[in-house]
Design a protein around this nucleic acid. Structure first.
Length: 519
RNA sequence: GGCAGCGUAGCUCAGCUGGUGAGAGCGCCGGAUUCAUAACCCGGAGGUCGGCGGUUCAAAUCCGCCCGCUGCUACCA
């Protein structure tokens, strides 16, 4: 067998100065789905997630709480790591930017960039708001009548000059534009790509990449008064986890450049502009694709503490179960666009798609095998045109799913699968095997076998989204563990007649509202 | 302000380079059925395709203008 092609996929690393919110969970779930899909499709997948632990905000949050940054991390990072088991994540590694391996890696990439002549020391100057602890462009400030200059938050700003290292980003403008041009799929979705291209085409200034005003970060090699700008630090995590700076490490050699960085749309620039430039400067290849997903809104409103609609992602899993939650977000939200969720929407998907359509199909067909055939999969007779057509629809799912997933259109992959679920329900209703029980038992057996075979393929294909539920479904069909990857889809591994099946159990229960609490 | 995009049935959205009767899912109404998780199946409900004007034999689909909305417009991430 030829070696599996590599596939390296990452989430952005989360900033753990608070607890995980739904956006973190969403990104992790979507990335996990893609990772699982590629694994089942025969790739040697490396899936990375983790936490971005440096920067001034971490320091400030810790100080407000009367903690050291390390204390704050000790409190918060486990909450992020807990997303793994809670959401069924299959990440191969979990990186923290405070780890020794990462400090070594970040300092190494800095040294490589410096050796390449792309880093120089100068003075960073700008309008600084002490109260906001942020610099603003002059265009963002206004000069009031009494000669006071104010920032966008209405706070006074002053001209500040600070020694800083700069990265020659401007030198990479043309190379970036050429790269976007030669690799139209580098930035996805396309709307994001256009924004980035116009941004870069508008000209790039050199980038200040060190800070001296606080010390919670990775020291600049040879000049420890400076710490690295958080994005030099943070982006480097993607190569640290492959063994950088050891570019001869097995993982690095096999899995860099990354195939896909899944990130939120708000940090596209850092990944699509700065990151390739940093990598090229260090003599490394740029990633193949950066995909910016959208934001989630609770009942159409942005989540905020003041509105009081903050939803704890762990709570959703407790309420609905991990697989329904994963299914809901991946099916309901067009990946790449913003989305909205609510209790009603989740329940609607859960009951209509999972319980009524797929769960009920499995239950009604398999219980007939149990009750009428002693739980033994029947031998199909001659296939009717309807039987053949049904099987052909099932056999055709993989191609559609793959095409969708090539473009990270997770929702379209699921739509393609559920179209077959609907076809299977129509097929089953039209064939009415319950009416054939006495009139034509052989034909009944054929219909039940075809339906079970269709469910087999659906279950295999749905594993990336609902690994637990899909496994239960495959258990009900007595499909061996080693026969559950995508190579088993299509006609090559039809369900074997004569196989004894376990008594079917419900895999997707309906969500029933709890009794209204007495007032 | 500039650049890009969007505005299609109650809701969420498909409708590519113009031409069979403007669609899907959900919701809703009616029917059928009882193998099944009161599920599945069948049928229906009729929306000026944001507004106005133009090009064309023909426009939701092209052009112009107007209204409304969104994103980007560098060092907060």
């Amino acid at each position: 067998m030829s070696p599996k092609p590599p596939f390296y996929i990452t989430t952005a690393i989360a900033y753990p100065n608070g607890v995980p919110h739904m956006g973190h969970a969403y990104e992790a779930i979507a990335t996990d789905c893609i990772a699982r899909f590629k694994r089942l499709d025969g790739f040697d997948v490396r899936f990375l997630t983790g936490t971005d632990e440096h920067g001034i905000k971490m320091l400030q949050t810790a100080q407000k709480a009367g903690l050291t940054p390390a204390d704050l991390l000790a409190r918060n990072v486990p909450r992020f790591a807990a997303m793994g088991p809670a959401f069924g994540l299959s990440n191969d590694d979990f990186i923290r930017t405070t780890e020794a391996r990462h400090r070594r890696s970040a300092q190494a990439i800095w040294e490589r960039m410096a050796a390449n002549g792309d880093i120089y020391k100068s003075v960073y100057s700008g309008w600084y708001s002490v109260r906001d602890e942020a610099y603003y462009a002059e265009s963002e400030t206004v000069l009031t009548g009494d000669g006071v200059r104010l920032g966008p938050q209405g706070t006074p700003v002053e001209w500040v000059e600070e020694e800083s290292y700069f990265f020659r980003l401007g030198a990479y403008q043309q190379r970036l534009l050429d790269y976007y041009d030669a690799n139209p799929g580098f930035i996805m979705p396309e709307a994001r790509r256009n924004e980035v291209v116009s941004f870069v085409a508008g000209g790039l200034q050199d980038l200040s990449i060190s800070r001296t005003t606080f010390d919670w970060g990775i020291p600049v090699p040879g000049d420890p008064k400076h710490i690295m700008y958080v994005w030099v630090d943070a982006l480097t995590n993607y190569i640290t986890a492959l063994g950088y700076p050891d570019t001869q490490a097995e993982l690095f050699r096999s899995h860099w450049p990354a195939d896909l960085h899944v990130i939120g749309k708000d940090i596209i620039r850092f990944h699509a502009v700065y990151w390739p430039a940093f990598l090229w400067s260090a003599g490394l290849d740029a990633p193949r694709r950066v995909f910016g997903h959208g934001f989630l809104f609770n009942r159409g409103e942005k989540m905020s503490k003041s509105v009081g609609n903050v939803v704890d992602p762990f709570g959703l899993v407790e309420t609905y179960g991990v697989d329904p939650v994963r299914y809901f977000f991946l099916r309901e939200v067009a990946f790449g666009q913003d989305g909205s969720y609510s209790h009603d929407a989740i329940v609607a998907r859960m009951n209509a798609d999972l319980a009524n359509d797929l769960g009920n199909l499995a239950q009604r067909s398999l219980s007939m095998v149990g009750k009428n055939l002693d739980g033994v999969l029947p031998v199909p007779g001659t296939l009717s045109p309807e039987d053949e057509a049904m099987l052909a629809l099932a056999d055709g799912m993989l191609e559609k799913a793959r095409a969708a997933m090539e473009a990270q259109a997770i929702h379209l992959y699921l739509a393609a699968v559920w179209a077959v679920v609907a076809d299977a329900n129509r097929y089953f209703a039209a064939a009415a095997p319950w009416a054939l029980r006495k009139s034509d038992p052989e034909k009944m057996g054929t219909v039940l076998w075809v339906t079970a075979e269709v469910i087999r393929q659906i279950a295999i294909l749905v594993q990336p989204v609902m690994p637990g539920s899909a496994a239960k479904l495959l258990d009900l069909l007595a499909v061996p563990g080693e026969a559950r990857d995508f190579a088993q889809l299509g006609p090559v591994a039809r369900l074997a007649p004569g196989t004894r099946l376990p008594t079917p159990i419900g895999v997707f229960p309906r969500y029933v509202e709890p009794e209204a609490a007495p007032q």
